[in-house]
Design a protein around this nucleic acid. Structure first.
Lengths: 339, 339
DNA sequence: ATCAATTGCTATAACGTTATACCATGGGTT
DNA sequence: AACCCATGGTATAACGTTATAGCAATTGAT
């Protein structure tokens, strides 16, 4: 294996200076067509790839941007990543993903590594219990950052999220319109955004309809936990005939629990999800949900990130995308015997 | 926002030289306890984080390693990532993930970016149709690399995979032992490893049992595609009473299709998966599958990567982990009227 | 023939680390 | 006093790029 080629290697082989080679590689400066061709040919022959560390150090540019999120396996998140990645790649950036599994300490370490390598930007969902010192860290190092889904109290960063409160209110109102009176909110742990806002939407819808009973039940946002939680919820509150879920994965888990209790989602107990992941349209029964288009959300995220990189002086922006009710079979009118 | 602090900033504040600060930060050299404490205190105060680009450039070390995979949203892959990430973090490395969505061109671009930034190492699943030039690229630049799941023909890299052929034979034999005679293989596209090996295992098991009928049906490896494919398969080959799937996601999709045909997986048609993702244990019906522990697989992968980094001269290794049959409800004996 | 402008290229100083070599100083031993 | 040898530091040259300034030629206008 020959030594890794650098500018100098190419330059001496081509009989020109490193400056010339550098300019050829970047397509800048005034270079005759003849030497340009020659340098390119030799660079290709030697398999030359520039050292991005040196380049980025000198030029201050870095086309690698990071995305730090909890639970990449969540299909919603995965689609967001696809959307962001597609748009960024079109602009010559590279998106790499970190999964902190919602652990603030782990996330801190990961963000430090990002700062260490002076990444071009960061899109992130703050992990649960993120201390303000982490926001400070980003601030002092001037890393262009956009938060996603969870909006921190310190509003120093750009943010892209969902109209959580409105959407959850719409979902709740829909269940009320079907005749349900005992409606629970299921999913999420602690009161991190956006869960707290969703609960607010849920509560305000109930109050508007003159329903006093409000039941909020904690779970981690995955299928298994959602299933277990639904069992518990049903045991503790058998009167509940409808649940608004904090995400489709929880809703799918809840549906599973209902089926295992020999009831049918949408007939005996109504379930409404949030996200509209691909599986929602093919599950049994098919899931009624508050749909947001995660792919488009990802693109929006990338757009905000690019704008921030291009002009760090811009005022901070907050973008909230709406969610729309998608009615399928997991919801239905309240049966007579349940009233 | 203050300027980004560097060694010099810390040094002048502490009244020492940059060399001293550098040594303190790395815990090398001879430094008195007194100045050590002082420097550390000031570095902390200034939120100093070293520039990894400069450090890595000078020292030749890089503690960032990359994982390039198709479809991070696949729960199996996600668990592998967790396992690898945990072990690597313990050793002070950072793992970031790239999703090429099984596109060779996209993957090529991503790997080039990795070489540009001289990452410490690469764990990857070669995308479908990866040209040999991509392997060459890794070779010429000496990037320590480990392939995963899909073993390239050019055996120049370390590899960690699954005993695909054996496992699929075990699955097929189990179905035969339940009385099934018309068994199909469902999932995967084209003949990339490990699918071709799985098909080999499936075929050899059939031949051993004296069954001539072998049906291989293509699908992308996700739930939706699996469902659609099962519909088609059933239409084309209504005689099939059992399917061996190329992954749990396909198997879950197939189960869904069977249910929608008003049949029951495990009673009318047997379904057997591969991977044993978390959902397999809670789906309806619960999925019989060839279980591998993806988390442990991830750790193994990280271990191989670290060994390779530590000693690039080591002979290349190939590790194949076994899969074990986990019997649940999606498989059952052949009913009389089906023979 | 003179001056100005353009073309094509090069020399060189950064960027922020780390590795190496080196230099004081202050004991202990003879 | 002369020596050795720790101890606790510092100065400085890399690492591989890019940005800037500048220098010969060549061309074109007068």
């Amino acid at each position: 294996m020959t030594k890794k080629p650098k500018l100098e290697t190419v330059a001496s082989e081509a009989g020109v200076s490193v400056a010339t080679v550098s300019q050829v590689m970047r397509g800048t400066g005034r270079i005759s067509e003849k030497t340009r061709k020659k340098v390119l040919r030799i660079a290709q022959k030697l398999n030359y790839v520039k050292d991005g560390r040196a380049a980025s150090m000198r030029s201050g540019e870095n086309k690698e941007i990071g995305l730090a999120i909890h639970h990449i396996s969540n299909p919603f998140n995965a689609e967001v990543i696809s959307g962001a990645s597609d748009l960024l790649e079109d602009e010559g950036y590279l998106l790499s993903t970190l999964d902190a599994r919602d652990n603030a300490t782990r996330q801190r370490r990961q963000l430090e590594a990002f700062i260490r390598s002076s990444r071009g930007g960061l899109i992130w969902v703050p992990a649960q219990g993120t201390p303000t010192s982490t926001y400070d860290l980003l601030q002092t190092h001037g890393l262009p950052a956009v938060t996603f889904l969870r909006r921190p109290d310190v509003g120093l960063l750009d943010h892209v999220g969902i109209e959580d409160s409105d959407a959850t209110a719409v979902a709740t109102n829909y269940l009320v319109s079907l005749g349900h009176r005992h409606i629970a909110f299921l999913g999420g742990i602690a009161s991190v955004a956006p869960r707290s806002e969703r609960i607010a939407g849920y509560r305000s819808a109930l109050i508007e309809s003159g329903i006093k009973d409000s039941i909020v039940w904690d779970t981690e946002d995955n299928r298994h936990a959602g299933m277990d939680a639904m069992f518990e919820l049903n045991k503790a509150h058998p009167e509940v005939t409808a649940v608004v879920c904090n995400g489709d994965m929880v809703a799918l888990g809840a549906s599973l629990a209902i089926l295992q209790l020999d009831r049918v989602p949408g007939r005996d107990i109504s379930v409404i999800g949030f996200d509209d992941i691909e599986e929602a349209a093919i599950s049994m029964p098919r899931l009624t949900t508050m749909a947001v288009c995660p792919y488009q959300l990802g693109r929006k995220l990338a757009r905000v990130m690019l704008d921030r990189i291009q002009d760090p002086g811009l005022p901070k922006t907050v973008t909230l995308v709406p969610a729309t009710l998608k009615i399928r079979e997991s919801t239905g009118t309240l049966k007579a015997y349940n009233t």
